[in-house]
Simulated scan of single mutants.
Amino acid sequence: MRRKAVVIAGPTASGKSALALRAAAEFGGTVINADSMQVYGVLRVLTARPSPEDEETVPHRLYGVLPPSKVCSAGRWQEMARAEVEAAWEAGRVPVITGGTGLYIRSLVEGLSPIPDIPEDIRAEARALFERSGNEAFHRLLAQRDPVMAARLHPGNSQRLVRAWEVIEATGRSLAEWQEEPNLGGLDADVLTLVLAPEREALYAACDGRFMKMVEQGALDEVAALAALRLDPALPAMKALGVPELLAHLRGEMSLEQAAAAAQLATRRYAKRQLTWFRNQIPDAKMVQTQFSERMWGDFFSFIHRFLLTQ
């Protein structure tokens, strides 16, 4: 019988963490984080990481495992996630991979292009050059070094621009060339992928309400603690949803109400991008057009149960 894994994905505030917890508790699973911000410590509340009580209910892995001073690439996460999936299988448990970072999930299920690890000094130089140049000028510089990738990327896509630069700088080959190579590292298993895709109005309302709850639960204190570390503003943890806005409030640049409104808008836009990505990039997933709630568990139970029993 082939090994099995369950992926529960979706945009922020869709209820995927609650569904993953319920599924892991019911089927003897280990919850494995696939959220690019929940891998970092410090921001438990602001990244909607499972509570300590939830983490004690069933095994949870890859939550808060890196300091915010580090960069977690898809390749690094894939390596850690594969190890946790194998450990779950060896323990006789079902890996339940959950999160909203689509590239992480695809890297685990389908594998990644065999791009070598980029040395940290080259990554730092690329980020510094981008900060000095700005989007438009950096895009023009990339067009001189790698016209193929520059033609594919919008000047506003800062993360991918920097990635394209650091790859050609470190390897001498365009990222486009690497992406044509066969993928490596995908799971040799049967994978059930569920994507929670609520109606937009309901999802946006959930995003707005959850952010205000985060503020009430101490998100501002978390951001203050993050600011005290004096980290590079270009690091991923410094760009987590709500961090730039709450930092601006702490610097006295906007009121808490203004910061919350700006963060809510950024969260809604991010959720919209996540929905679009999952619909277009994971065509084999089962799309569920609603948020998870306990009253729906019976339907999910039957579907997951059949998958786990199918040989």
Rank of each mutant, 00 (worst) to 15 (best):
169 E>G: 07
79 E>A: 15
136 E>A: 14
52 P>R: 03
79 E>D: 12
115 I>M: 00
122 I>W: 06
85 V>L: 08
113 S>Q: 02
62 L>Y: 05
159 Q>M: 14
110 E>L: 12
152 R>V: 06
111 G>Y: 04
117 D>M: 00
108 L>F: 09
136 E>K: 14
127 R>L: 09
121 D>A: 13
96 V>T: 08
170 A>N: 00
154 H>Q: 11
106 R>I: 03
143 A>S: 14
128 A>Y: 03
166 E>M: 12
145 R>H: 07
117 D>N: 04
93 R>K: 14
108 L>H: 08
53 E>Q: 09
141 L>Q: 14
141 L>K: 13
155 P>K: 11
61 R>F: 01
144 Q>C: 08
85 V>K: 03
129 L>G: 11
115 I>N: 04
94 V>Y: 03
54 D>M: 14
75 G>Y: 08
109 V>K: 02
170 A>I: 00
102 G>A: 09
50 P>Q: 05
58 V>D: 06
82 R>P: 12
121 D>E: 15
80 M>Y: 11
160 R>L: 08
128 A>V: 02
149 M>D: 09
81 A>S: 06
175 L>W: 08
167 V>H: 08
154 H>G: 01
147 P>I: 06
170 A>Y: 02
112 L>E: 14
75 G>S: 11
162 V>S: 01
160 R>E: 08
169 E>P: 02
161 L>K: 10
114 P>M: 03
59 P>K: 06
62 L>F: 11
70 K>A: 14
150 A>Q: 08
63 Y>C: 09
109 V>M: 11
151 A>Y: 04
156 G>L: 13
103 L>G: 00
78 Q>G: 05
112 L>P: 05
66 L>S: 13
118 I>G: 01
123 R>E: 15
135 N>I: 05
122 I>V: 14
167 V>F: 07
68 P>I: 03
104 Y>N: 09
148 V>Q: 13
134 G>E: 09
62 L>W: 09
84 E>N: 05
